[in-house]
């Protein structure tokens, strides 16, 4: 870190931005594997229904609850068949789409709305904060399942409505976290330094406060992902969520539950998918937190460039 250390000019750095990021990803093997897993799941979600949609819904009562790792019915039954004899593998791949749509949609909506109001509540004066926080308290004190039942009963079960309901119940988490962090960060010296320079409120919030609290929010969002997937399944279980023949992993778990004693694979595989997705997201967000923090980034940079 001596004064004489040469630093690359910025234009070169910008060109290398993407490849540098990939390099950092490669250096964290867990995150790298997670990224690949997530890409595969994304591919499932995008192409799955078109390729395997028919297979996933075709019933075959002879293959009811057929055990996994038995290739006599063809490779598609490698993970076994469900209670109506539909291949689990195909259903898993097809279900990726609606699962990801609901989970990602709900988490992203809750994150954006929660962070937005959290920033306002934390940064603005007492009145705005009071109003927003009491509203959040109302949402939190209302049993989320009850809220979901009411809303979905009125609006009718569909994916956008599911996203809406799940997002509303998760908003307070982001809102409260954001507000708490903002209250701390806004007192930091560099925020005051920005005020002295004449920075506008918008600039202070977006340039100085948000980047500091973003890693926390992203970490919560990834943890929330699994929660939302399971919440969606409990709504489906009550019959107000995703309706068959549409499928999600959560729905598959709840459909497999009665057969846990006789055919564990019905609930196990979709459960595993939820775990793998949540875990991958978590590992990736962990990597992202380090990669986006200038003070931590060196951990992921190659020795050569830091020693140069």
């Amino acid at each position: 870190m001596s004064d004489s250390t040469a630093v690359k000019p910025v234009s070169q750095d910008q060109n290398k931005g993407a490849s540098a990021l990939l390099g950092m990803l490669w250096r964290d093997k867990f995150a790298f594997v997670s990224a690949i897993v997530l890409l595969i799941i994304m591919a499932f979600a995008i192409f799955g229904p078109a390729l395997l949609g028919d297979l996933a819904t075709s019933q075959n009562l002879r293959g009811r609850n057929s055990p996994p790792f038995d290739l006599s019915r063809g490779w598609i039954f490698v993970l076994g068949g469900d209670s109506l004899g539909r291949p689990i593998l195909a259903r898993l791949i097809v279900a990726a789409q609606s699962t990801m749509a609901v989970a990602a949609g709900a988490v992203a909506t809750a994150l954006v709305i929660g962070a937005f109001f959290g920033l306002i509540a934390g940064y603005m004066g007492k009145t705005a904060s009071q109003i927003i926080m009491r509203l959040a308290d109302v949402i939190m004190s209302f049993p989320s399942l009850l809220l979901a039942v009411v809303v979905l009963y009125v609006l009718g079960p569909s994916i956008p409505n599911m996203i809406l309901v799940l997002a509303i119940t998760r908003i307070p988490i982001y809102l409260r976290t954001t507000r708490a962090e903002v209250l701390e960060v806004r007192e930091r010296m560099f925020v005051q330094a920005a005020v002295v320079m004449g920075a506008s409120h918008r600039r202070i919030v977006l340039r100085h406060i948000l980047p500091v609290i973003a890693p926390t929010l992203i970490t919560i969002a990834t943890l929330d992902f699994a929660f939302v997937m399971l919440a969606e399944s409990s709504l489906s279980f009550l019959g107000i969520g995703i309706q068959p023949p549409s499928i999600t992993w959560g729905l598959m778990v709840s459909q497999g539950r009665p057969y846990l004693n006789t055919a564990w694979w019905l609930a196990f595989w979709p459960g595993l998918m939820i775990v793998i997705t949540a875990l991958s997201l978590n590992l990736l967000s962990n990597w992202m937190r380090v990669a986006l923090d200038p003070a931590q980034r060196w951990r992921l940079e190659s020795r050569k460039s830091t020693d140069a």
């Binding site: 010296m189 560099f190 002295v196 100085h208 923090d293």
Partner: peptide
């Protein structure tokens, strides 16, 4: 203004 502690008065990001 120049603040007391440059570690805190410079945005680390």
């Amino acid at each position: 203004m120049v603040f007391q502690d440059p570690t805190q008065s410079l945005n680390p990001r």
